[in-house]
Nucleic acid binder design. Structure first.
Length: 597
RNA sequence: GGUCUUGUAGCUCAGCUGGAUAGAGCAACAGCCUUCUAAGCUGUGGGUCAUGGGUUCGAAUCCCAUCGAGAUCACCA
């Protein structure tokens, strides 16, 4: 039972005996005592003043006196306005620290073999261009959410749907065929995804030239866009692909192979991974079958031009296209097929899609369509809808070349981390390999924390001209605190200080130390809340709060130079516990912490 | 136009399941390294919580309206 619920129970008993009112313990408002007041926990007494028929102050005094007298857990109290501040016994805090110190997976609820399965889809790239900053947010959120749900006892299956077919990839293929001079990643030294992306751009440029020429010759813009030879050829290529044309298929496999090799590098660098990968080329046919079944069951209808639609007007939405007039499938068709396949493959309890908020409508429709197709789980899909990453000028636009490339950004962050470390004279006795490793951890830590500390639902701004900070509320600041603690712990070992044994729970400890223990006790509920709300930001902000508090303690108190052996041992345990929680919490964000930096 | 999201310090963000004087970081300025890592710590200045109403003992937080920003309503994905 948490301290908070214990206090809630005690207060409800006291209120009952004093004022004869029954209060649900969980409804009693408890909060952390604000820094400027004395005490650890605060009870809001306003709800009782009516029954007490006394002033808020008097009511608080009365409740406080009774609690204090009856429970050794509470050692003193004070009342300010309608707030009853309780001070919890140091013994309780010391015993609590012992529990935390001894539990190396503190806060984590490990899944078991029969835990429910949560499938989390994230990343979901198109295979026609490299990953950019928007994908970084998606990947980091998806990975972190997965780790957080695991820590809440779910069996998580991380999945990725690769959009590997369609007109977009045909555009890259066609441009490479026409203008590529048989370039390969090997011959150019380019990462495969970047090489393919290059030809996607080449296509677009050549296509624009053709459109301009047609307009010059008197065509309207729409006609020009529709009739430009390149786009016609790309469409033919898509049809050839669907017919399994061997040459087109061969080219497709080759170029997608380049892209996957490139993506794999990016994923590894980013530190994300998947348990099961689905490919649109393998699921879109299942989607088509489902849609056709829907037509047979009169859930969907066919228009005179043979296109297939779902009428969702009764749900307040529009009509939705499911199959084009030429029989080819659209994005929605594919998503229906993928969903069905996944539920066939796994006993999914909860399906989560990490997809940007620009697709809110899409997922609303997807749920309804699956429901119409008779899948009871259709309504249970969770669209974890996150906000866009914007530049100070607004959205990233590939046409204007303002897209921030994922590989470039990570490399820059790592470079900056290394430069900073050298400039500050850190790591002087480390090998170049060790320096590179710390630079990697810190650079990526800065980037990941920068993105994950923001409430995922909100749009966020990234300014490429101002490099991401390494001071203040940042990843490196948190990593630094961890490194400092580890340094102290190493020194303690060198000095043969044995701090692993149980501490004296009658020690007198300071307010600062008590606060730190109290912060540590918050960790499990932070993980729970982060899971319930799908918010890595809660974990990030918690880490910052904890570490900030620790740094003040570190500044004001000496650990190794403390003369009282029992106190020294206590502080070592406290520091070690903070380091452990920081490590676990940062791990939930997909951020590593270095032993030194 | 319909639906949804959003508006907190110069900038980037917390706080939003109603509670005490609205918090951090960056930027600016002023201090602290013979003392466990100064990527740290301390201090100063900086706010009409978009605006107006309402509910309440109490509103940045909940409700309504207005204004601003964004997303979406494609035979794109």
């Amino acid at each position: 039972m948490s301290l908070e619920s214990k206090i809630q129970f005690i207060v409800s008993q006291s209120v009952l005996s004093l004022y004869k009112i029954e209060t649900e313990a969980s409804h009693i408002q408890i909060q952390k005592t604000k820094k400027e007041f004395e005490g650890d926990l605060t009870v809001v007494v306003f709800p009782f003043v009516k029954a007490a028929r006394k002033s808020p102050e008097a009511t608080g005094q009365e409740i406080g006196a009774l609690i204090c007298q009856q429970n050794p857990l509470v050692t003193s109290f004070n009342v300010i306005k309608g707030f009853l501040n309780l001070t919890i016994s140091k013994t309780y805090w010391l015993d609590t620290l012992t529990e935390i110190f001894e539990n190396h997976s503190y806060g984590i609820k490990l899944p078991t073999a029969d835990s429910d399965i949560m499938m989390i889809e994230y990343s979901s790239p198109n295979t026609n261009k490299p990953l950019h900053l928007g994908h970084i947010r998606n990947n980091l959120l998806g990975f972190s959410i997965s780790e957080i749900q695991k820590a809440n006892g779910w069996q998580v299956v991380k999945t990725n749907i690769v959009n590997d077919r369609g007109i977009h990839i045909c555009k890259s293929m066609l441009a490479w065929q026409k203008f590529g001079n048989a370039e390969t990643p090997q011959s150019t030294g380019m990462k495969g995804d970047h090489l393919v992306g290059k030809y996607y751009v080449v296509f677009d440029q050549a296509y624009k030239v053709q459109i301009a020429e047609l307009i010059e010759k008197g065509a309207t813009e729409d006609e020009a866009k529709k009739n430009a030879p390149l786009i016609v050829e790309a469409q033919q290529m898509l049809l050839a692909w669907e017919r399994n044309d061997p040459q087109v298929r061969q080219l497709w496999e080759t170029m997608n192979g380049w892209v996957y090799a490139g993506f794999d590098q990016t994923y590894i660098r980013m530190g994300v991974n998947f348990d099961k990968i689905y490919y649109e080329s393998e699921t879109y046919l299942i989607g088509k079958e489902e849609v056709e079944r829907g037509v047979r069951e009169n859930e969907f209808y066919v228009r005179p031009d043979k296109s297939v639609w779902a009428d969702l007007t009764s749900k307040g939405l529009d009509e939705k296209l499911l199959l084009r007039a030429d029989g080819t499938s659209v994005y929605m068709t594919q998503d229906i097929g993928t969903a069905k396949l996944r539920y066939d493959d796994y006993d999914i309890k909860k399906m989560v899609y990490v997809v940007g908020n620009e697709q809110n409508y899409h997922f609303q429709v997807l749920s309804l369509l699956l429901d119409k197709l008779g899948y009871s789980w259709g309504n249970d899909l969770v669209h974890f809808s996150y906000g866009m990453v914007e530049l100070p000028e607004g959205k990233m636009k590939s046409r204007e070349g303002t897209v921030v490339d994922a590989d470039d950004l990570m490399a820059e962050m790592i470079d900056t981390a290394r430069d900073t470390a050298i400039e500050l004279g850190k790591l002087e006795q480390c090998t170049s390999q060790e320096i590179a490793e710390v630079a990697r951890i810190v650079g990526l830590g800065a980037l990941k924390y920068f993105i994950l500390k923001v409430d995922p639902r909100k749009n966020m701004t990234f300014n490429p001209r101002e490099s991401i900070d390494f001071n203040g509320n940042t990843g490196p600041f948190i990593q630094y605190t961890h490194a400092r603690i580890k340094s102290v712990l190493r020194k303690a070992v060198e000095q043969h200080i044995d701090f692993g044994t149980k501490i004296d729970n009658t020690l007198l400890i300071s307010e600062k130390e008590t606060n730190l223990i109290q912060l540590l006790t918050d960790f499990p509920s932070v993980i729970k809340q982060a899971g319930d709300e799908f918010s890595p930001a809660l974990v990030a902000n918690y880490c910052y709060e904890l570490v900030k508090e620790f740094n003040q303690f570190y500044h004001d108190f000496s650990i190794l130079k403390e003369e009282n052996e029992a106190l020294k041992k206590f502080r070592l345990q406290l520091a070690a516990s903070v380091a452990n929680v920081v490590k676990i919490a940062m791990g939930l964000l997909g951020i590593e912490v270095p032993e030194r930096m």
